[in-house]
């Protein structure tokens, strides 16, 4: 154990292990955590083990998890998007304006999703076109996008969304299975296939591991990053549609703090914040865990702010444990 020469550059170490086993162990850890919380919840509250309770539970994470799917890809390439919650605010505000102009439900959805993609493209242009660091750009657009929502709305709100529009956020496809959950599962499947079973996915990993090498081997790094930021915008737009439909109103403070929860899901899911590794299954499991934790604590009447302590600790502990374990093993060896 000597001092590391460069902090946080342990990718070679990780590649030495068979990747598969490392991935499996991380995900099985997540499954265990999820199971433990599930069991603890069922003991802690008599209202937990009920199909409608569990169905309600999914609403705790579906919108954030949709964003986390795209965020995972962005983080795997070594970038980050902190503007997602503000994209929701702007997209929702624009939907409200469209509503006042007399838009019907399909038009509202188109506006929400369209604004999301445009915001993502704006981020992507600044980051890949002007070669600026994504963390600063998206901190800037985070203020800008939500700032526009505040300029439009001030302390007002948009209400009166059509009844058929609210189905996106409140409707059930079948029994207790909500539309939001179905949409999330379908998207998760698509992201899984794209990331783990296509050329595009391999390129995303290649960029995260070594963007320069990827470029020399013919990967269009900037174009892929641009597409990924548009994708994050798209998913944020979709989340804006779902959230607006679920709440039935738009305020400029809508979805405050979603960006940090989405990043937490991604990192908790085993995606390296330094880029280059991670799985969609891990992200889905992390989303489930966060939903279980917040819902279980909610049933126990724990205030939201105290839940955030659990989420924050979970994030640090889950990251720290494997590192501590590795250090302990190295010391023994």
């Amino acid at each position: 154990m000597t001092d590391t020469t460069t902090t946080g550059r342990q990718l070679p170490d990780r590649l030495d292990n068979p990747v598969k086993s490392a991935v499996l162990s991380w995900e099985s850890l997540l499954v265990l955590v999820a199971l433990a919380i599930f069991i603890a919840n069922s003991f802690a509250s008599p209202y937990f083990l009920n199909e409608w309770s569990l169905s309600d539970m999914t609403f705790n994470f579906t919108e954030k998890a949709l964003i986390a799917l795209a965020m995972a890809l962005v983080i795997i390439t070594g970038e980050i998007d902190l503007s997602v919650a503000s994209i929701i605010a702007l997209a929702s505000t624009m939907m409200g304006l469209a509503l006042q102009a007399g838009a019907d439900t399909p038009m509202l959805v188109a506006v929400g999703v369209g604004v999301g993609i445009l915001c993502g493209a704006f981020n992507g242009f600044l980051i890949t076109g002007l070669k600026l660091p994504s963390i600063v750009v998206t901190i800037g657009t985070m203020s800008l996008f939500r700032g526009i929502a505040y300029i439009v709305l001030g302390d007002q709100s948009f209400k009166g969304y059509p009844v058929d529009f609210s189905w996106f956020g409140q409707g059930y496809v079948f029994w207790v299975i909500s539309f939001e959950l179905v949409l999330f599962l379908v998207c998760a499947l698509i992201f899984y296939v794209v990331l783990h079973h296509t050329n595009f996915g391999r390129r995303v990993f290649a960029i995260g591991n070594n963007a320069t090498a990827a470029r020399f081997s013919g990967v269009r790094v900037d174009r892929i990053k641009f597409v990924l930021f548009c994708l994050t915008g798209l998913m944020s737009g979709i989340a804006a549609v779902l959230l607006t439909a679920r709440l039935g109103s738009t305020r400029p403070s809508i979805a405050q703090g979603f960006e940090l929860e989405a990043v937490t899901m991604v990192v908790l899911g085993g995606v390296s914040i330094l880029g280059g590794s991670g799985t969609i299954i891990g992200v889905v499991l992390a989303a489930l865990i966060m939903g279980l934790v917040t819902f279980g604590l909610g049933l126990l009447n724990v205030p939201g702010i105290v839940m955030s302590i659990f989420i924050g600790s979970l994030l640090i502990v889950v990251i720290a444990l494997p590192i501590l374990f590795r250090m302990w093993r190295q010391r023994k060896a």
Partner: peptide
């Protein structure tokens, strides 16, 4: 209410 958008623009 313009404050937020202005500081965002300033950052960019």
């Amino acid at each position: 209410f313009w404050q937020m958008a202005i500081s965002g623009t300033a950052i960019l």
